[in-house]
Structures are given as structure tokens and as C-alpha cells.
Simulated scan of single mutants.
Amino acid sequence: MQKVKTFTLVLATLMLTSCVSKKEIIYFQNDQIDQSKFTNSYKTVFKPDDLLQITISALDIEAVKPFNLPAVSYATTTSSVIGTPRQQLYLVDRQGFIDFPVLGRVKIGGLTRQEAINLLIKKLDPDYVKNPTIIIRISNFSVTILGDVQNPGTYTIPNERITILQAVGLAGDLNISGIRTIQVKREENGRIKTYDVDLRSNNLFTSPVYYLQQNDIIYVAPNEAKSQSASANQNTGLFISIAGLLISIITLIAR
């Protein structure tokens, strides 16, 4: 009988130690936030492989036409336009340049939106267009959420502004087995930099990656229990049967 009690105690201990405490899963625990580090300002910085939609307008409609070229497709046999023309998109190459009508190669990479607008205004006014108004949008702004979440994948963000919490929400939140300290991988100066963000801490609001940039990758690692269960092989059922048999044998011996 003593052996049965000992075995039961060991089994109960293992079950308790496998449980996850609330502190490991609850978001926004009571850490003090340095309000001087918290800001709602956000700046888009253009990067290689961005597809930019650049619209230039002015009072002189004819003057801006060469800078607002439509992208069209032509039939190979009749040379007629296929489909509805749409505005031309400009790809930022690996050196940060775009090929812009009339102006040629213009370096946009590494600039914020306002810096890029100011640069184009300087190149256009007054030689080509007087007092131009310029709008620049990223048409392929997206973030990727991978790992232990409900709906991993790549998400396109139309308004180019998303927080790390909103991205987690898009993915359906972390699974209960997801580790709350997550990683954000971001390309900076041609290299991938990794940031750790603890969702359990209010200090996440002061993280440099609280506002995500285009092409950021969020990775949520599974906890140890899930990792171990995923590595179990096809013999798991056999092991469970053997364990059950051993328990029965111990019970019979103890009687």
C-alpha cells in the first residue's frame, strides 16, 4: 500500500509542476512605465522591395501628367489596352533607388515619408511642377506572424500603421502554450536584428518595435511542454500502455 501512495504522490507532483502559473500567461502585469519613453509617434521608413504608389498633383494638370503614369497591359495581337489602367508602382531596389519618370533614379530608401516628399518637391519645383502636392503610400506593407498563435501567416496592412498588439490580434492571439516573451525580427541596415518583447509587461509600450515596420516578422515560441509533446514519436501510445500495465502490477503487488 505504501508503494501505491508513493507512486500516486510522484504522479501528482509531476502534474502540478507541468501546470502553467498565471504569471506566465497574463498580459500587462503591473510593471511601472517610464512615460517619458512612451510616444504615439510613428514614422514609416522606406526600405528595399517596397512598392510605392506616388501621386503628384498641382494646379497645372498638364504639368503633372508625366509623373502620374498609368500601368497598363497590352494585347500581343492587337496592341490594345487590356483591363482598367491603374497607377504605376515604383519598386525600391536593394540600393534604395526608384526609377521615377523624367527625374530618373531617385534614392528613397532610408528616408521617412516626409523626407521623401521633401526630396521630390525639391526636384520638381519649380523646373517641372510649381507647388506640387505629393502623396506616397506603400502598397505592399505587410507583417508576418509565425509560431504558436491561432492563425499564423502574412498580413497586408492597408494603413501602414500597426502595433505589435494589433498584429497579435490579427493572428487570433497566442495559444495558451505560447511563450509570452516573443521575438520581432527586423531588417536594419541590411542586417536582421532581433528584439525580445515581453507581453506580460507594460513596458512593451515603450519598446522600439511596439509600432511594426513593413516586413517585420513576429515569432512566438511554444513552451517546453508543447515542444516535448510535438517531439513525441509514434511509440507514445505503446509507452502509455506500458505505464498503465506497470501501475496495475504495482497495485497487485501492494495488496
Rank of each mutant, 00 (worst) to 15 (best):
L111G: 02
L14F: 13
I135E: 15
A63C: 03
S18I: 01
Q234P: 09
D125K: 00
I179V: 13
T17Q: 11
L14D: 11
I145V: 15
T163A: 08
Q213I: 03
T55K: 14
F46A: 04
N68E: 09
R161H: 00
D196Y: 10
Y195T: 08
N203W: 00
N159K: 12
L9W: 03
T77Y: 15
I54H: 04
A225S: 14
T8V: 14
A225W: 01
F100S: 10
N203K: 10
K65V: 09
D34F: 11
L212H: 01
R113F: 04
Q29T: 09
G237E: 02
V220K: 03
R180Y: 05
S229V: 09
T84P: 06
S41D: 11
N131G: 08
F205N: 07
F28R: 06
N68P: 08
V64L: 05
D148N: 09
Q32E: 07
Q166F: 05
G96K: 15
E115S: 01
S241H: 02
L120A: 04
V197A: 09
V184N: 05
L170Q: 14
I138C: 14
G178I: 00
I82G: 10
E188S: 06
K123C: 00
T133I: 08
K122H: 09
T181F: 02
G109Q: 02
L89Y: 05
V168G: 11
G104R: 02
P66M: 03
Q166H: 11
S41C: 06
R137T: 13
L146R: 14
